Computed example of a mutant assay.
Amino acid sequence: MDVGAVAWLVTIGLILGLLAVDLALAAVRPHVIGFKEAVAWSLFYIAVAIGFGLVLIAQHGGEFGTQYFAGYIVEKSLSVDNLFVFVIIMSTFAVPAQYQHKVLTFGIILALIMRAAFILLGAALLNLFTFMFLVFGLLLIFTAVQLFRHRDEDPDVQENVLVRATRRVLPVTDGYSGGRLFTRLDGRRAVTPLFIVLVAIGSTDLLFALDSIPAVFGVTEEPYLVFTANAFALLGLRALYFLVSGLLDRLVYLSTGLAIILAFIGVKLVLHWAHKDIDDSVPEVSTALSLGVIGVVLTVTTVASLVKVRRDPTARAHAGSLRATPVNERNEPRQ
């Protein structure tokens, strides 16, 4: 895929422009995001992502367009798991509703920066060493197994290494200080709890990136498509948070569905490595088939979750974890 410097600059400019609008709205008018506003922004970002995909198809053909849409759907589905953790973080730190918009926008900016770095590194490794397809594939399969094993648990936000380190190193105020990240405490510079929340969201998304970037490389090897699929999925994450945060508890089988998707893409990467390095008779999984499998898994997961909740109203979803949560911390009700 031939993408020139101008296309990259225009794309990055579009993404930065959308982020600037989000930041301006959060800074100028901090407010609680209502349902209608969340729906409007969600539809807007989906329309932008679809429009971008149609432009890709017109300029580069249907194959690259299909790869982009497959990557976008993978990232969008994985981002719902991010939302689970965001809800846990917001409730754990009791973030006032009017400041959640701001911290989510900053969190998305951090996520884009970190993922851009991962994409550049991943693309370079895949170009230099074809066995990295095997490494990425095995990483996704391992992650899928761990996520399935701990599908009924939630990550422990308070025990996040960076959060604990920040609390030890920097003075933290008790209040949110009007939604600022920094303030003064007893005459010296201090951070507010909103800064701690941002650290928690950023470091958590760093862990998500370790799974999502290899997953997208499983459906396309084009760095431009990997970056844009990530970017447009993340841009809609803030609006999606306010739209579905109250409904997430109903998706009781989401972690199971995501584990299946990660395992499927992991196997796809392993087969791709074997096809390249061992024997070209080893079958590969096409992008169209990948898109179909992902769509079916997400549909079945959603329908099965809604049926389960209807039959058992006490059933609640969990974000899933990559490691076991101590027994005394499990099943604690969210505030």
Score class of each variant (00 low, 15 high):
Ala144Val: 10
Ala94Pro: 04
Gln67Cys: 01
Thr192Phe: 08
Phe64Glu: 03
Glu63Gln: 15
Glu75Arg: 06
Ile113Glu: 03
Asp174Gln: 11
Leu139Cys: 12
Val163Pro: 06
Met90Val: 07
Pro96Tyr: 14
Phe136His: 12
Pro155Ile: 09
Ile73Asp: 08
Ile119Gly: 09
Ala144Gln: 06
Val172Arg: 03
Leu139Glu: 10
Lys76Ile: 12
Asn82Val: 03
Val197Asn: 09
Gln98Arg: 10
Ala97Asn: 09
Leu181Gly: 00
Val157Thr: 08
Leu104Cys: 07
Phe129Ser: 08
Gln100Gly: 02
Arg184Pro: 03
Ala124Pro: 06
Tyr68Ile: 05
Leu170Gln: 02
Val74Ile: 03
Asp154Trp: 09
Ile141Ser: 03
Pro171Phe: 11
Lys76Asp: 05
Phe86Leu: 11
Arg167His: 09
Val103Gly: 03
Leu181Lys: 09
Ile108Trp: 07
Thr183Met: 07
Phe136Pro: 07
Val163Glu: 00
Tyr68Pro: 03
Lys76Thr: 14
Gly179Phe: 06
Tyr99Asn: 01
Thr105Trp: 12
Leu185Ser: 09
Met114Ser: 02
Tyr68Trp: 01
Val80Phe: 11
Pro171Tyr: 10
Thr166Pro: 09
Ser177Ala: 15
Asp186Met: 12
Val169Arg: 11
Leu121Lys: 14
Phe69Ser: 07
Thr92Ser: 13
Arg115His: 11
Ala165Glu: 09
Ile113Thr: 01
Leu147Asn: 05
Val157Phe: 13
Arg168Asp: 12
Val191Thr: 03
Phe129His: 10
Val191Ser: 01
Tyr72Met: 01
Ile196Leu: 15
Phe93Trp: 09
Ala97Lys: 11
Tyr72His: 02
Thr130Val: 07
Gly187Ala: 03
Leu125Asn: 08
Thr192Lys: 08
Leu78Asp: 02
Pro193Trp: 10
Ala111Thr: 11
Phe106Trp: 11
Leu181Ala: 00
Arg184Ile: 10
Phe118Arg: 11
Ile113Asp: 00
Asp154Glu: 13
Glu159Met: 13
Tyr99Pro: 00
Pro155Gln: 01
Tyr68Phe: 02
Arg189Gln: 09
Glu75Gly: 09
Asn127Asp: 14
Leu110Tyr: 12
Val103Tyr: 07
Val163Gly: 00
Phe64Gln: 06
Gln98Phe: 07
Val169Glu: 10
Leu78Met: 01
Leu198Ala: 08
Ile109Gly: 05
Asn160Cys: 00
Lys76Gly: 04
Thr66Lys: 14
Lys76Val: 13
Phe84Thr: 01
Thr183Trp: 14
Asp186His: 14
Ser177Glu: 15
Val199Leu: 10
Phe148Ser: 00
Gly187Ile: 02
Gly65Asn: 09
Tyr68Ser: 06
Glu153Trp: 00
Glu63Leu: 13
Gln158Asn: 15
Phe148Asn: 08
Ala94Asn: 14
Phe182Glu: 06
Gln98Tyr: 04
Ala123Asn: 05
Leu138Pro: 01
Val135Asp: 12
Leu185Lys: 15
Phe106Asn: 01
Asp186Asn: 15
Pro171Thr: 05
Phe118Glu: 05
Phe129Pro: 04
Ile141Glu: 02
